[in-house]
Amino acid sequence: MSAQRLHLVQQHLCPGEKGGMEAVSSPLTTHVLDTASGLPARGLCLRLFRLGDCKQQWTELRKSYTNADGRCPGLLTPDQMKAGTYKLFFDTEGYWNKMGQTSFYPYVEVVFSITNEAQKFHVPLLLSPFSYTTYRGS
């Protein structure tokens, strides 16, 4: 990795850190790691959606940015948690552009179901310019 790229990754300011996610315990979290650099993906824009019951349209619940550790800890409050189908939209193109890179995937969408509102859900994303991996974490 070039020294300039490493500097960008380490020094990039996260737009969501000031006035961003509240520090409440959330039943839904995500963590994005930049596997090309081995560092958290700081400042990556993401959006959370829920699929509507009747209209079958996606409703945006939250827009945020990953923090310095690559996490978005407060995606949903316990009050907002309900059974249904959700989608996390990750703006990977925007992230890689900030890092001075191009990417094969302009975005990543992870669609998942929540059936038990009492459980916690963690949706990690491992990211490089030409691949990604996700799984249900703990």
Results as ranks from 00 to 15, higher is better:
Ser2His: 07
Ala3Leu: 10
Arg5Trp: 05
Leu8Gln: 04
Gln10Thr: 10
Gln10His: 12
His12Gly: 12
Cys14Asp: 12
Gly16Ala: 13
Gly16Glu: 08
Glu17Lys: 09
Glu17Met: 10
Glu17Asp: 12
Glu22Cys: 09
Val24Lys: 08
Ser25Leu: 07
Thr30Lys: 00
Thr30Ser: 00
Val32Glu: 01
Val32Tyr: 02
Val32Ser: 01
Leu33Arg: 00
Leu33Ile: 01
Leu33Val: 00
Thr35Cys: 10
Thr35Pro: 06
Leu39Ser: 11
Pro40Thr: 03
Gly43Glu: 09
Cys45Ala: 07
Leu46Gln: 03
Leu46Val: 03
Leu46Asn: 04
Leu48Asn: 05
Phe49Glu: 05
Arg50Ala: 06
Arg50Ser: 09
Arg50Leu: 06
Arg50Cys: 10
Gly52Asn: 12
Gly52Ala: 07
Cys54Ala: 15
Lys55Asn: 13
Lys55Leu: 14
Gln57Met: 15
Gln57Gly: 15
Trp58Glu: 10
Lys63Cys: 07
Ser64Leu: 04
Tyr65Gln: 15
Thr66Trp: 04
Thr66Pro: 03
Thr66Asp: 02
Asp69Lys: 09
Arg71Asn: 00
Cys72Pro: 03
Cys72Gln: 04
Cys72Leu: 04
Pro78Thr: 09
Asp79Glu: 14
Met81Ser: 11
Ala83Phe: 00
Ala83His: 01
Gly84Gln: 02
Thr85Ser: 11
Thr85Glu: 10
Lys87Leu: 08
Leu88Gly: 02
Phe89Ile: 05
Phe90Met: 02
Asp91Ser: 00
Thr92Cys: 11
Thr92Glu: 12
Glu93Pro: 04
Gly94Gln: 03
Lys98Thr: 08
Lys98Met: 08
Met99Ala: 04
Gly100Val: 01
Gln101Cys: 07
Thr102Trp: 14
Phe104Gly: 08
Tyr105Lys: 04
Tyr105Val: 06
Tyr105Met: 08
Tyr107Leu: 10
Val108Ala: 02
Val108Asn: 02
Val110Trp: 04
Val111Gly: 11
Phe112Trp: 01
Thr115Cys: 05
Thr115Asn: 05
Thr115Val: 06
Ala118Leu: 13
Gln119Ser: 14
Gln119Ala: 14
Phe121His: 06
His122Cys: 08
Leu125Gln: 03
Leu127His: 06
Leu127Glu: 06
Leu127Val: 04
Pro129Thr: 12
Pro129Ala: 11
Pro129Leu: 12
Phe130Ala: 14
Phe130Cys: 14
Phe130Ser: 15
Tyr132Gln: 07
Thr133Asp: 14
Tyr135Ser: 15
Tyr135Arg: 13
Arg136Thr: 12
Arg136Phe: 07
Ser138Ile: 15
Ser138Phe: 13
